[in-house]
Write a protein that binds this DNA or RNA. Sequence first.
RNA 1: GCCCGGGUGGUGAAAUCGGUAAACACAGGGGACUUAAAAUCCCCCGGAGGCAACUCCCUGCGGGUUCAAGUCCCGCCCCGGGCACCA
Length: 819
Amino acid sequence: MTNEQDRYSPEAVERKWRERWERDGVNRLTEAQLANAENPYYNLMMFPYPSAEGLHIGNIYAYTGADVNGRFQRLNGKDVFQPIGFDAFGIHSENHALKVGGNPYDLIPKNIENFTRTLKRFGGMFDWNHTVDTTHVSYYRWTQWVFLKLYKAGLVERREAPVNWCPSCMTVLANEQVVSGLCERCESTVEQRQLPQWFFRITDYAGQLLDNLSDMDWSDVTKKAQSAWIGRSQGADVSFAIAGGGADGEKARIRVFTTRPDTLFGATYMVLAPEHPLVDAITTADAQPAVNAYRAEVAGRDLVERQKTDKEKTGVFTGGYAINPANGARIPIWIADYVLMGYGTGAIMAVPGHDARDFEFAQAFGLPIVRVIAAPGEDAATPLTEAYPGDGTLVNSGDFDGLTVEDAKQAIVERLEAEGSAKAQTNFRLHDWCVSRQRYWGPPIPIIHCTDCGAVPVPEDELPVELPYLQDFRPDDSGQSPLARAEDWFNASCPACGKDAHRDTDVTDNFLCSGWYFLRYPSTGRDDLAIEPQLTAKWLPVDCYIGGNEHAVLHLMYARFLTMALHELGIIGFSEPFKRFRAHGLLIREGRKMSKSKGNVISPDAIINQYGADTLRLYLMFLGAYEQGGDYRGSGIQGPFSFLNRLWQSVAEADDDPDLPPEPAIERALHRTIRQVSEQLPEQQFNTAIAAMMEYMNVVRAGGRTPRIAELAPLVVMVAPFAPHVCEELYERLGFKGGLFASAHWPTYDPAKVVHETLNIAVQVNGKLRGEVTVTAEAGEDSVREAAELDGNVARHLAGKRVRKVIYVPNKLINLVAA
RNA sequence: GCCCGGGUGGUGAAAUCGGUAAACACAGGGGACUUAAAAUCCCCCGGAGGCAACUCCCUGCGGGUUCAAGUCCCGCCCCGGGCACCA
């Protein structure tokens, strides 16, 4: 039956089905289908950033996993909505355009075209009827609309703030975009600048963002990363009176945040951040020169230097004193750069006995160290050679002596609360989201500044505020966007009073574009509104979102925040956007990370040319655990390629009789395979599911036997999510009509047929494997033991011994413990 | 420094609740089919000893618990990622 023409030719098969799917609209949903779907399943993956380099194999890896899920759900009867789009605004594109001397307006469409070609070629089941391009006015007018909605809800504010300034990108960065003092994009050292900026008040939602995590079906690693980033700490605000503060001494109090109010009696000094506003008021005349010098020194020190944790503690005494509200002690007030203005209140009570940093500082400057917590076996007098941060009971703490740390926290706060000098407080590490960028390639902020009316939002019906095509869009060091130089655009009349005014020149952070795109996909057919309520209610929240964990604290948290905000505004009916999120691992190559600089990047196009998209997809899903990542080895692709060839040949050589039932032994193997694959695919355990199908193939083909159609058809359907083109072809060749993805159903298994008729039971003597016996499935412990003792080798190891104990693990193992 | 992953054959990797370590593949070796190649089919493939039956050793290192440990506990080492003076 095999002849030259029947050979598996990936190129021809894939072209045929790509064209057929396109022609028949197999993957596209019409507006009516979108509106009326009975079993909606929204399968989302992170839309790509269309760079000039083309789609990376890492993207294909991510998308294949998500596409396998979408195709699997579809074969299980779901109406799968699987859109894709392009996240094309942002500094990366802008910098690239500057480098090559073009304009992103001209370059981006070419990149998108190139990405689209590869996305179609790798076989993603994308609905190209519902796509977004964040740089198109049809999208970003609604990004501006989102901004205005939040603005009107009071979640946006403009404030002069010390912001992270990247001198190379010449723009402001969010905290999340500063990686150990360096710009996330270009790795320049980030500086601090005071600039007016637009902020989203994400911290209003810090508690909710954290609390919701606990019962969300997300990858654990992602939840942990978010929870660490939000960084809740529970404690108390305590205020310390300034000693001898003159007439207004009563008013001037220093507020500190502490997670250890139980150690208050051990607070022997205070430290303020050098930038703290009370420093000048506290500093005595004598100390002023030293304080000034220190503050100048810290201000001049770059951020990277200041953030190093291993350097020696520095600081100076202000000459001022505060009163410890617990015991009335006069304690000195210092300033030091290890206290940060950006966290808590910018001031701390220092408890050197029980905080490592304070201990180090106290030692360096000869400040008193008092023990207030005693661990078991210690008492008030036990000397401290290092800070003791652990648990224990209170000592040297007046009335509170003897309380446990936990009880004392509450008791001390209660006492001080009654006196008006403390209150319980929760602090978050999370900062507000700075969304303005002094750059060109982004959606302009829809605000007009008027000398009389101040900042006035552009009326919604005047959106979009179009981004003008600028010949010269280089950023400058002015702290203003290049848009400030576009006079025609810059000048506008005030929407409130009609007077001459000017537009806000900042554009929004790229993460705002990507923070709501999944809300837009179902509504892309609508030009008159951003988010169509009924479609949104039908399809959202997203059923499954798959993407890289590098976005755990950036994109995913912003998307959650925007969803919460829009929910509170009544625009959407849910407050968490993604029911399920799975982080895939990193694809590396031969043990090393792939990167352009190392020159070891794999081009998906080259692999597809050689082996076809189906083999590439199958290999990517086979080479390791999807959630762990994997190592791409060039030679390994041969395995999946052979597998598809064998599948092809099996179909070509199959017995023609479609009614011939499977051979019984093979049928059992088939049902076991169906069970395993059906259980593992929805859990993204792709590699072992593929191994199971390969194993089944070995059974079907054993000895070159002629397979039967009934043995192959379910396999073709199960392989289809991984290798959709060739499986469509084989499905057709097996005589089925209507197209696999349009009409086939996922195979089911019969529990009665997955059981083995006989079992191999391992036999151990004293825990060591000494033999194996084959018994019927119904055999009980006694008959297994009997059979085991008959085994020659087992009998030898038992000779002269008496069996004292038998451990029997049904269906697996029997261990004869003998002495 | 802290928090997450991870360390298993020549290689990529498997191994529910502690229950036959190395499934499935790649590479390598041998054979069948073929004029030939491709594709396909069969066999071998952790180390040491042995003609073989079989025995001993082996999941980063050192201890422990257990009839039984890749898996659990204690103490280390190494690699990858994240966070980093967060009060």
